[in-house]
């Protein structure tokens, strides 16, 4: 991270708790750059997170109000905080399991209500903190601690899910393309109402290790190889799309 972004970090921190090669640090940098571009004062920022590795992206790292909540409930907490204090730019940052599995109902209802929140989902496709269990975002066939022979179930398409529920803005980019991620987060925060950014943030420790990419560089290259722009994915079959990261802005 450039030193210019250090002003947004909380003092007294010795570093993050993220594993070597974790994408969450890059996402943190992208988030701060977006905030910096918009020029929001730190006192007007509230970051809400749930439980899991990604919940530690804002808490305690960002020098703003941070609300580290319960597993799955970040969006519900953020809804109450935002409605009670509309002046606060309220941003939820949490993981895929947190936001879309245990917290899936809160996610779709916040989108439906069009509460003025930006939800940033760090999707590492697995439960990292608890030891690599299958998530609702794990690709078909990927090996996990609970599906050693490969996950038999399809993953959520989170952008389509929130669009179906009424999101004003929805985009998906990997942390291997930080400029696009910064743009998307900036647009999401600037767009009034419920907005959503899914950041593909690979987990070398729990996902890469089990899926033939123990090397971080290899894992990032694999992510890049699987990315396909939404325009180019339109001709794909549903099952083919499931094997890729279809990236881009899906709404508006």
């Amino acid at each position: 991270m450039t030193r210019a972004m250090e002003k947004y970090l909380r003092g007294g921190l010795g570093g993050t708790a993220f594993c070597p090669g974790c994408g969450h640090g890059i996402l943190l940098g992208a988030l701060l750059r977006a905030v910096d571009r918009i020029g929001i004062h730190q006192d007007d920022l509230l970051f809400v997170s749930g439980i899991g590795c990604a919940a530690w992206i804002p808490s305690p790292n960002i020098g703003a109000d941070t609300l580290h909540t319960l597993h799955g409930r970040a969006v519900a907490f953020a809804t109450g905080a935002k409605i009670a204090s509309p002046k606060m730019t309220t941003i939820v940052v949490s993981g895929d399991g947190d936001i879309s599995s245990i917290g899936g109902n809160h996610l779709i209802h916040a989108a439906r209500r069009d509460t003025d929140l930006t939800v940033i989902c760090a999707n590492n496709q697995i439960y990292g903190m608890t030891g690599g269990q299958t998530a609702c975002t794990t690709p078909v066939g990927a090996r996990t601690a609970t599906d050693p022979a490969g996950n038999p179930h399809r993953p959520f398409d989170l952008c389509q899910l929130v669009i179906g529920a009424g999101a004003r803005y929805a985009a998906r980019y990997p942390i291997t393309r930080p400029p696009m991620l910064v743009d998307a987060i900036e647009k999401a925060i600037r767009t009034p109402g419920f907005t959503f950014v899914e950041a593909i943030s690979p987990c070398p420790t729990q996902f890469g290790r089990r899926n033939d990419t123990p090397d971080v560089g290899d894992l990032y290259e694999k992510v890049e190889a699987l990315c396909i722009d939404r325009e180019n994915a339109e001709s794909m079959t549903f099952d083919e799309r499931l094997k890729h990261f279809v990236i881009g802005e899906f709404r508006p």
Partner: peptide, 14 residues
């Protein structure tokens, strides 16, 4: 669940 979480969030907002 969402109700009580929203209440806690609102209380945090003062």
């Amino acid at each position: 669940i969402a109700s009580i979480c929203a209440v806690i969030g609102a209380s945090g907002s003062g």
